[in-house]
Design a protein around this nucleic acid. Sequence first.
DNA 1: ACATCATATCACCCAATGCTGATATGATAA
DNA 2: TTATCATATCAGCATTGGGTGATATGATGT
Lengths: 115, 115
Amino acid sequence: MQFNPVAVKAKLFRGFSDTSRLAILECLRNAPVTVTEIVELTGLGQSNVSNHLSCLKDCGLVQSVQKGRYIYYSYTDERIGDFLQLADSVVADLAKGFYECTRYAEEKNEEACHS
Amino acid sequence: MQFNPVAVKAKLFRGFSDTSRLAILECLRNAPVTVTEIVELTGLGQSNVSNHLSCLKDCGLVQSVQKGRYIYYSYTDERIGDFLQLADSVVADLAKGFYECTRYAEEKNEEACHS
DNA sequence: ACATCATATCACCCAATGCTGATATGATAA
DNA sequence: TTATCATATCAGCATTGGGTGATATGATGT
């Protein structure tokens, strides 16, 4: 159990820090969704989705409710969607600045962010 | 270069997803800060901080300006701080729910979130 | 009870990540 | 120009992380 607030925050963000998990989180943006539905929507493998869902649950981003033989996943908090929205807006603006940059052609580091 | 919006968002969040980087980002919350200052404030190794700063730069979260022999790092966008604030509030509420939970004593998965 | 569907878990592989210590670059001041 | 300070980069290591395929669990309907 992590009580260090910085570690908890890092864990929270870690939930968002992978493309597959982001895709899964997008699936939950409107309503609770089934694992199978997520598999279909994302095209990811079933065990893969299941693992990511465990991760998201552990990160505190999602919760699950069993109904019949389905398990519905949903956000633990409406503000989870706010993160996605905030990221959308920031990314849009960064991209805009990027395109507007005249010196765009100069070499960009493709393989950075190793940590 | 990643133009897939989901990948860009994941990259953005990856910047926040490590305790060391979060600590660094906290240092920048008020004003541009020097690498050496960050090293002192966080207690992290110099090369470690430098690597994380490269990562943060690549993730689009920070930018740097050279002044004399110092390099000042700062957020690329004021909204970077909003992420931290949003995380603070969500974590506070999640923690509250956690403490209020009567079944608190039951075993919690300590080593989850492997992905 | 049995077949089936939904989900989780396991074993394994490979790539990425975080860290450290040593070294290189680059600016400044004496 | 040489010494020093600030920062970046490199090599190497141990660990984590994401992915897959196979298997296990668990609920439902017949």
